Computed example of a mutant assay.
Amino acid sequence: MIRAVFLAHSGFLVELPSVTLLFDWWKGDLPPLRPGVPLLVFASHRHEDHFRPDIFALDDGSRPVWFLLGKDIRLTARNRARWQLSSQTAEKCLCLAGGQQAEPLPGIRVETLPSTDEGVAFLVAADEKTIYHAGDLNWWHWEGEEPAWNRDMEVRFQRYLEPLRRRHIDLAMVPLDPRLGDACGWGLAYFLDLTQTRRVLPMHQWEDVSPTERFCRDHPALAPCVVPIAKNGETFIFEEAE
């Protein structure tokens, strides 16, 4: 079973039997964490809508904790002082660039992909499940940008996703950003065509659910695996038999 809570924007709490995964939490109420169950805290990059230093306070001794951070979240002496990050907690931080792998706990593998913005995307294998969180890895196509810039973004996005070709993913969290207008769903559609993904929770929607509705209407063949999110704090439970 997978239990996922949408916190806000791109923030999710994902519970697997043996581990809890917290992705890009900067806003929204964090539900009570299971006591004693290991916690992996992910921050894809330094943008304030994906990372806040408060996450380090989760290392409170009530459970094993590791922090997996995009490489652009720099643990300099100045930042550690500003964030009140102790040396003990800093030792539990892994700063990862795209294309790296880590095993923070036995039986749990984390892979990273480069991002078309900053930081990384995460692919987590645990409890015979594979969980993907894109961070800001997306097909960013902005009206008004130079055609060469938009073309470069397309090429980089497709190249960075290539390691996921035909990969089975049980739960993915992928941007569906309304600011992109007609290009809003390009990244998600490409991701679903490339991978073998069972379920997607759209994110980075800026509290606007209309992109999900539009995507499902425009892509009826892909719509069955897209799970609409109605509000912050919404909980989803995905059973094995589904």
Results as ranks from 00 to 15, higher is better:
212 T>K: 00
102 A>S: 15
63 R>G: 01
170 D>Y: 03
125 A>E: 14
148 A>R: 14
184 C>W: 03
84 Q>W: 03
226 V>Q: 01
169 I>Y: 06
123 L>S: 03
16 L>W: 00
192 L>N: 02
235 T>G: 03
194 L>W: 04
50 H>P: 09
110 V>W: 05
154 E>K: 09
142 W>H: 14
141 H>L: 13
6 F>N: 02
48 E>F: 15
115 S>T: 08
141 H>R: 12
73 I>E: 07
229 I>R: 00
80 R>W: 03
57 A>P: 07
231 K>H: 13
161 L>N: 04
21 L>C: 09
160 Y>P: 01
241 A>C: 03
167 R>Y: 05
30 L>G: 07
53 P>K: 12
147 P>M: 10
196 Q>L: 13
211 P>C: 09
116 T>Y: 08
56 F>W: 13
24 D>I: 05
43 A>R: 03
61 G>I: 12
127 D>A: 09
58 L>M: 07
112 T>Q: 06
149 W>K: 14
223 A>F: 09
202 P>S: 03
116 T>H: 02
146 E>W: 11
73 I>L: 10
70 G>F: 02
180 L>F: 15
170 D>G: 06
216 C>I: 10
186 W>S: 09
154 E>S: 09
174 V>L: 12
66 W>Q: 15
9 H>Q: 15
117 D>I: 10
209 V>F: 06
100 Q>F: 02
194 L>Q: 01
86 S>A: 08
201 L>H: 04
51 F>L: 05
111 E>K: 04
122 F>V: 00
216 C>F: 01
69 L>Q: 02
62 S>K: 15
196 Q>P: 08
13 L>H: 01
102 A>H: 11
116 T>Q: 00
190 Y>A: 06
1 M>V: 14
141 H>F: 14
10 S>Y: 03
97 A>M: 06
11 G>H: 07
227 V>K: 02
198 R>W: 07
64 P>S: 04
97 A>I: 06
29 D>P: 08
71 K>I: 04
191 F>L: 11
205 Q>T: 12
31 P>V: 08
121 A>E: 06
149 W>L: 13
65 V>S: 00
169 I>Q: 05
152 D>G: 15
78 R>I: 09
57 A>K: 14
170 D>S: 10
203 M>E: 12
186 W>N: 14
103 E>S: 15
109 R>E: 13
65 V>W: 04
28 G>T: 02
104 P>N: 10
144 G>P: 03
196 Q>I: 08
206 W>D: 12
49 D>K: 09
183 A>P: 00
122 F>W: 08
139 W>L: 15
230 A>T: 13
100 Q>M: 07
80 R>Y: 01
199 R>L: 15
119 G>W: 01
170 D>E: 12
20 T>H: 07
5 V>R: 04
231 K>A: 13
63 R>E: 11
61 G>H: 11
212 T>Y: 02
89 T>I: 01
53 P>Y: 07
181 G>R: 10
154 E>H: 11
85 L>I: 06
240 E>Q: 11
93 C>K: 04
189 A>G: 08
235 T>H: 07
191 F>C: 05
2 I>P: 00
